[in-house]
Amino acid sequence: MTTIEVNGLRKRFGPSVALDGMTFVVQPGRVTGFVGPNGAGKSTTLRMILGLDRPDAGTATIDGRRYADLPCPMRHAGALLDPHALHPARSGRNHLRWLARSQDLPDSRVDEVLNRSGLAAAGRRAAGGYSLGMRQRLGVAAALLGDPPVLLLDEPFNGLDPAGIVWMRDLLRGLAEDGRSVLVSSHLMSELQDMAGHVVVVGHGRVIADAGVNELIGAYSSLEAAYLDLTAGVGGIR
């Protein structure tokens, strides 16, 4: 059972404060929604969990270890950050193959995740021709490659068609039911309401609310209402 622990992250970019003591824990066995206005610090937090940005203060750990210290890190945590981050001339399958090489995983694992993402046919085409939905599927396939106990997904529903949204919802729910820690940043409150067991609401670089979805619905009637009320007056970019 692996948790993500974010503890007192602080980060300044010049005069603007991006993170101001961001603290929360993502528990296994449920989908945790990560919500907040644009510029609230969600993406920066995700990048710091993955060791791509250095915090001025605080720590972010997976199972008690810094991401960068993990050997074969994609076997510990899978991430979907930017679905457009693909070389246009390289096929989706070859994109996964180099990732598999870097984690010492066999090519058979690549074909497994391609099938699971519904890209078995498209995987051999150059990624430059992929729709946003296909890119999201490929990004999820990459995140699942190392069969990690932790998943971090930034706006996974963007660009998916209705069938894709249903697929994604079922996939994430199934992953959480397997006992994984699943952190999903999204602006789609209705999706999260159906799927997430817990939400972390952030604004101004810190946590505003960290509560179960059912508690919030009980207090505010819907997750969307809860979000709008909690983040009222919280501008994004300052």
Partner: peptide
């Protein structure tokens, strides 16, 4: 193509 973040994550 912004893949450097994917590379450094892997």
């Amino acid at each position: 193509h912004s893949t450097i973040r994917t590379t450094l994550t892997a």
